[in-house]
Each structure stands twice: as structure tokens, then as C-alpha cells.
């Protein structure tokens, strides 16, 4: 892949922070970001994150509602614990954890989402390129 076209995939709950998405799945507010929405962040599998990284994503942003306020009661807690390795299934050992960011933001916190993900993308640039797998 050429450097110019690095993509960050966002896996997000449709009830969490409001993110604009265009027809092609891109988020116009954050250059390079592509978004997939889920009914609940608890549906996100560690496998999906790994698939995105393996498929050439520069990073993955996982986003759910504020911890404590899941519409389905526990979904965001579940994926958070899975990411931290406290609840099975967890991520494989070799997964580059520096390329994953999890955000827990309520519907009105759009600005926070944009600034956090921009900052994340900036740090990604300084990381060594993901090893080819």
C-alpha cells in the first residue's frame, strides 16, 4: 500500500457519539477515517479489529457510549474488557495494540471524538509501519 492512502477504521455503536458518515463510509470530519456502525459496541469482535489491521488499516478506533450508559446495559463494558484482555475472547498476542484506540463518548460529544481521533491518527504516523503479515 502506498503511504498516502492509509486508512483508519472506526467501529462504532450507532447510539454513541454522533459521527457524520458519507455514502462511501468515510467520515468527512476526519481525513482518512472509514466508519462501520453497529447496533451496540458489544457486537464488535476482537477478530474484526484484527481483520482490519491485517487488511492494511493503519489503526482502529473502537467507540461506544459512556461506560455505565449502554443502551443494551453492558455492551461497552464487554468490548472494553475484551480489549484489555480481561474477558474472552481476547485479541491475539501479536496484534499491534498501539494501533487501537477505544473511546467511550455520549451522543453530544462529537468534538471530543474528532479531536481524539485526529490526535490518534497523528501518533499512528510516527509508529513504524505495520509488519507485513
Amino acid at each position: 500500500m502506498s503511504d498516502a492512502q492509509k486508512t483508519v477504521i472506526t467501529l462504532i455503536c450507532e447510539r454513541a457519539v454522533e459521527v457524520n458518515v458519507d455514502g462511501g463510509g468515510a467520515c468527512p470530519d476526519v481525513p482518512g477515517m472509514k466508519v462501520i456502525k453497529f447496533p451496540c459496541s458489544g457486537m464488535i469482535q476482537p477478530l474484526m479489529i484484527e481483520a482490519a489491521l491485517k487488511g492494511g488499516a493503519e489503526g482502529v478506533v473502537v467507540c461506544g457510549c459512556q461506560i455505565g450508559d449502554c443502551y443494551y446495559r453492558e455492551g461497552n463494558r464487554m468490548i472494553r474488557e475484551r480489549l484489555l484482555g480481561d474477558r474472552p475472547p481476547t485479541m491475539k498476542k501479536g496484534t499491534d495494540r498501539r494501533r487501537i484506540l477505544a473511546l467511550w463518548l455520549a451522543r453530544p460529544q462529537k468534538d471530543r471524538f474528532i479531536s481524539e481521533s485526529k490526535e490518534f491518527i497523528a501518533t499512528l504516523g510516527s509508529l513504524a509501519a505495520p509488519e507485513a503479515k
Binding site: Q66, I67, R80, L101, A102, L103, W104, L105
Partner: peptide, 11 residues
């Protein structure tokens, strides 16, 4: 330790 952002520790 309340968080709006989780950075996953590198293993």
C-alpha cells in the same frame, strides 16, 4: 480511573 478513552497496554 473513570475513562472516556482506553489505551490498550502493549503486551
Amino acid at each position: 480511573d473513570a475513562e472516556e478513552k482506553t489505551v490498550i497496554p502493549v503486551k
